[in-house]
Amino acid sequence: MIEDFSNTLVTATPFLLGSLWFTITISAMSIVIGTAIGLLLGLASAYGGWVTRFLVRIYVDIVRGIPGLVKIFTVFYLVNALLSEVAGFTLSAMACGVVALSIHASAQVSEMARGAIQALSKGQAEAGKAIGLRFWQVQFYVIYPQAIRQILPTWVTSSTEIVKGTTLLSLISVPEFFITIRELAAREFLYIQFYGFAMIVYFLLNFSIELLGAHLERRYSRY
């Protein structure tokens, strides 16, 4: 049994590494895009007028109220149907996955960023203005560094959620790590071994993210 597993594992290594790389790429892209959009939305809801705040609120509530898998299917089927109707092209399964996961992350980050920005004293922005910094400079050099430090622990948790969320993409046939595991497990009848292996790999992936987060926290907690 063990030998069967280790033999399969060795022969399937390139295959597994390729799909693991897919998982990592999709996660990283979704986290980066989602964080960028989320920071902008957070800024909009912290400073915007009531219309802007209201629109962001609706977006965040809708996104947070829908299960991840439903978001993925919605983008894959509904958005793609609309796109092919209107623009004459469709997104690949992987692109749909990145879009869905980015949307998910953006809502989480938006809420964190809004809270962190609002928690900063008004005096910080005023001190920035007083030395002649313009609005975006104040955000970039004064507000964001402090807000990001504030949201770092929660952000790390959300990032690991995104990595876990990529497993759902196996359901729209994105060739990520979990779909490969499922195929191998079914083909070789080694369910316990392969799912156990997947458990360890995902744990290590997320544990590295946690370690990176802890490192960043230490680095930026000098003040």
Partner: peptide
């Protein structure tokens, strides 16, 4: 406005130093 603000220097009651710098 930013340019004109730089004509004057402001010292705040609560200091308002940037804690991350």
């Amino acid at each position: 406005k930013a340019r004109q603000r730089a004509l004057t220097g402001m010292v705040f009651q609560t200091f308002n130093l940037f804690p991350h710098l």
